[in-house]
Design a protein around this nucleic acid. Structure first.
Length: 109
DNA sequence: CCCGTGACTTCCG
DNA sequence: ACGGAAGCCACGG
């Protein structure tokens, strides 16, 4: 209950609302939450949700569109496979059409 | 309260 | 252009 207001919960909530075939960045999420310098915490929150199929953490990449968390899924091309499955082009662990699949966070509460 | 950790980001050389 | 280092914030112990 108390944790419902935690930074993690906010990150989880945002990531869960990422539309299919779209991706976003840690910094964008952090900035949306009001803490643009807490991008690392966002990534850390991803690790906390690792194993939750309801949270598409594979849709969250770094600012350069690089699949930095790829090694955290299973150490293989799982993350790449999931993204490609949504129509996202991955080139050398990086999103080729990053700007095309980039999702601007705009949640209405 | 202090310390360590981390899937980032930015600056400096 | 490339690589290394520092800064950053939140959480757990």
């Amino acid at each position: 209950m108390s944790k419902e207001n935690s930074f993690f919960k906010k990150v989880h909530d945002v990531v869960k609302q990422i539309p299919c075939g779209k991706v976003t960045t840690y910094g964008e999420i952090a900035r949306y939450l009001g803490t643009p310098k807490s991008a690392r915490v966002v990534g850390w929150a991803m690790n906390a949700v690792k194993g939750n199929p309801e949270i598409p953490a594979h849709r969250v990449v770094n600012k350069n569109g690089l699949l930095t968390g790829k090694f955290h899924f299973d150490g293989t091309n799982l993350m790449k496979n999931l993204l490609e499955n949504e129509g996202i082009i991955i080139k050398n662990n990086k999103i080729f059409n990053f700007k095309e699949v980039f999702w601007k966070i705009s949640i209405k509460k």
